[in-house]
Amino acid sequence: MQPIVAVRDLTKTYAQGAAASRALNGVDLDIYPRQVTLLMGPSGSGKTTLVSIMGCILRPSSGSVKVAGREVTRLSEKELPAIRLRHMGFVFQGFNLFPTLTAVENVEIALELKRVPRRERRMRAGALLDEVGLNDKHRAYPADLSGGQKQRVAIARALAGDPDVILADEPTAALDKTSGRTVLEMLRRLAHDKGRAVVIVTHDARTLDYADRVVDIEDGRIAAERDAGEERYLVAEEG
């Protein structure tokens, strides 16, 4: 299977000189469609830096990143938004919804960026909200939604651009147990049923139940990479 994102010998250094801090140090990683990949590791290990670079919103210091076979590290600032728009969908820990827009308008905005005609936008945004179980919340504002509902709106928005990759940064961190499970189940279905590549940055051990692959990152390097079933077994053993 061809990876949708291929990262090779990636480094990222913040600042320069004595203050320089290396966040990533020679990372190689492939992300595949139909898989839920977990990026796990302690705070400051480089998970978020890695997902930012894979999402084409942060430039690496060196190394290669290919998205759908295209090298993106040398693309200009003007070219990168088109890559994000075409291939990436983001789900954030803090939801990052637009508080002045309704749920359906939040989803529509992603379609507007893709220049989908106005009438079609409303229809497709409504269908996506229905898909994530928010049939009755189209006109609700984010302030009137629970954390789980907000994250589902965020997932619908991420899906609106029909991306190849969903990058989710701590998607369950702000959610209660039930909402967290709903969101993770939704992300798993996106990978297994819809063929997306789903990357989840997390500390949350509950996430293991929904993952196919676990990548441990420590000190800017990939410390271990294994099948999630094996990880679940180890966690159970430790338990």
Binding site: M88, N96, I109
Partner: peptide, 16 residues
């Protein structure tokens, strides 16, 4: 500003 950052992450151009 965070909303504008989100828009940029989603693929919005500066012009948008």
């Amino acid at each position: 500003i965070r909303e504008f950052g989100t828009l940029k992450a989603m693929g919005a151009t500066n012009g948008y």
